[in-house]
Design a protein around this nucleic acid. Structure first.
Lengths: 195, 195
DNA sequence: GTCTATATCTAGATAGAC
DNA sequence: GTCTATCTAGATATAGAC
């Protein structure tokens, strides 16, 4: 079981930390903050519970690390073509792909019941809304942006977190195709035909 | 403080039970299952914690009562006019109005982290999806119905549970108007112009 | 550095006094 | 019938042995 023997102490420690964090992410993503125990995380990572505390200080801090989202999208500069926007949306929220990263799922899973996760989610979503707002033209851009983001959130929840059977069984690309006209309905400025 | 003195014992008890249930609904809706304590419910209802147990047996059972949704919409018979469907959707999920009943909020708040709430939510949403499916024509009716429901769920979460500022500040009717084209994009059968 | 053992805290549930 | 007091379980967090 022991890996290559030439691993520095620091390297071994780094790997253990990472293993713990990965385990935490998965459990937080699956069960949420409250129902995930330090013991379970330790067991999943194959370490002692005390070690988890040693490394991360508290359950809160462990969650903060596990759920920290490194926003990967600074692009969204100025208005773009609607179809690009739609694709960006579908990609960004992982509707297209088979699943969001555990990091995002962890935040999402707990955002309705854990204050810190709620704050994190609000910040992330607000930022996404702001980016999207800049890309929209016409009246009520900010509200429309918010509705766009919330739509993808709702679909993600139904698909990834609740596993609603009609969404779970449908191929992701098909869902993306079905969603396109709806998203376009929010992207197209209201009360004026498409430009 | 004592009410009209001519209240039968049974009547007084009934009112106390109701007061407890109301308090439970609000706290479950606001904080979720895990973070709501029997003690807090009792305090909010102005009774002793033991009384809550006496009446409802367990926290689980109290939650089940508080979150039990009496589905108020058997209508949805056969296909209708798209605009009617849209209005029904917007009304049903309380986007239009100022808020959902605490009962529904309680279920929603906990559906991502509490297994029983998740099951309840799945049943309710699946039923709504089924009703909606029957009202849609064209291919992939069930998937489109699911996307419609999830959209309203996402907006409700952003609005009522996360209080995203762009949604919180916008008048509900305005949001409804902005959502209409998007919902229409899912109601209109794909790959064919509007009938 | 790692783990055993334990302290402490919180909350659900219960028993018995009034 | 109502409440005080308590029991119990489960979890975070810590102290100290190895």
């Amino acid at each position: 079981m022991s890996e290559s023997p030439r691993l520095s102490r620091a390297e071994r420690r780094r790997r253990t930390e990472e293993r713990i964090l990965d385990a935490a992410r998965e459990l937080f993503a699956e069960h949420g903050f409250e129902r995930t125990t330090i013991r379970a995380v330790a067991a999943a990572a194959g370490v002692d519970p005390a070690l988890v505390m040693q490394y991360y200080g508290s359950k809160q801090k462990l969650f903060a690390q596990a759920a920290a989202v490194r926003l990967p999208q600074p692009p969204a500069e100025g208005p773009r073509h609607p179809d690009e926007l739609i694709d960006a949306l579908l990609t960004a929220l992982g509707v297209k792909l088979d699943g969001l990263p555990a990091t995002s799922l962890a935040t999402m899973r707990s955002m309705l019941t854990h204050p810190e996760a709620a704050e994190l989610a609000r910040e992330t979503l607000t930022r996404q809304i702001d980016d999207m707002t800049g890309a929209l033209s016409g009246p009520d851009a900010r509200a429309r942006a918010a509705l766009l983001i919330c739509t993808t959130v709702g679909v993600t929840i139904g698909h990834q977190l609740l596993s609603l059977e009609p969404l779970r069984d449908a191929p992701p690309e098909r869902l993306a195709d079905l969603l396109r006209p709806a998203l376009r309905g929010l992207i197209t400025p209201p009360e004026s035909p498409a430009p």
